[in-house]
Design a protein around this nucleic acid. Structure first.
Length: 210
DNA sequence: AACCGGCTCAACCGCCGGTCG
DNA sequence: TCGACCGGCGGTTGAGCCGGT
């Protein structure tokens, strides 16, 4: 009874960046068994990771409906509007941006929006015109990383769905995957052998799924 | 070409509330 | 009722990338 429970099993807990093998194991396991108790899942899948780490990796990166990069002007407007309303309630804000994670929104806010907060026009953005003012400022400083152009947005011709219309697939699940893969391919075409994208992960998962 | 500083974002940390035995 | 466990959340960190000098 002197032995502390579980301590001996905590010896080997991996931290740091996830490897492709770990991603594959996690995706494969969830595809076959679904999400469950994360600590148990980590052990059952044979991952030397904490349940928290697995959950975070799945929710922020591996989940098939995660959209990555290319925050659209409308999303930016929504983020600013909801942040003005709720403050740093990132998960609450994320619920109103399908496919976006709280972590991504949080990062986006801190790196792309917060640094401009000293500018007077950005202090109050409770309506569309305020947002347009901000977007106009950002356009002049080339700070807007998005698919749709500012001109599209200003002229009202831009639609948040239009950038993804090529993915209008009956199978929403794989449509989102394709959309995600395309974005990743477009944004990181110079990745070398040490990198991989969700196409790699999911194609391997599909192969292993039978 | 090398160095440096700023930027980005994946991942971790610590805390809190809910649930269950 | 209480303690252990778990998930969720917001804040923070650090490695890698990139552009400027």
């Amino acid at each position: 009874m002197e032995k502390k429970p579980c301590k001996s099993e905590e010896v080997e807990v991996r931290k740091g960046p996830w490897t492709m093998e770990e991603d594959l194991i996690l995706v494969n396991y969830i595809a076959n068994h679904g999400e469950g108790v994360w600590n148990s899942l980590a052990k059952a899948a044979g991952l030397k990771r904490t349940g928290k780490s697995c959950r975070l990796r799945w929710l922020n990166y591996l989940r098939p409906d995660v959209r990555r990069g290319n925050i659209t002007p409308e999303e930016q407007f929504l983020i600013m509007e909801l942040h003005a309303k709720w403050g740093n309630r990132w998960s609450k804000i994320a619920k109103h941006l399908p496919g976006r994670t709280d972590n991504e929104i949080k990062n986006y806010w801190r790196t792309r929006i917060q640094k401009h907060m000293n500018k007077p026009a950005e202090i109050c953005y409770s309506n569309q015109s305020d947002c347009e003012l901000l977007l106009d400022q950002q356009a002049s400083t080339s700070q807007l990383p998005c698919n749709g152009t500012n001109a599209d947005f200003m002229e009202g011709s831009y639609s948040p769905l239009s950038s993804f219309s090529h993915c209008n697939n009956n199978d929403a699940f794989y449509g989102q995957q394709q959309q995600q893969q395309q974005m990743i391919v477009e944004s990181s075409s110079n990745h070398e052998d040490n990198y991989w994208n969700m196409e790699d992960i999911w194609s391997m998962q599909i192969l292993n799924d039978d």
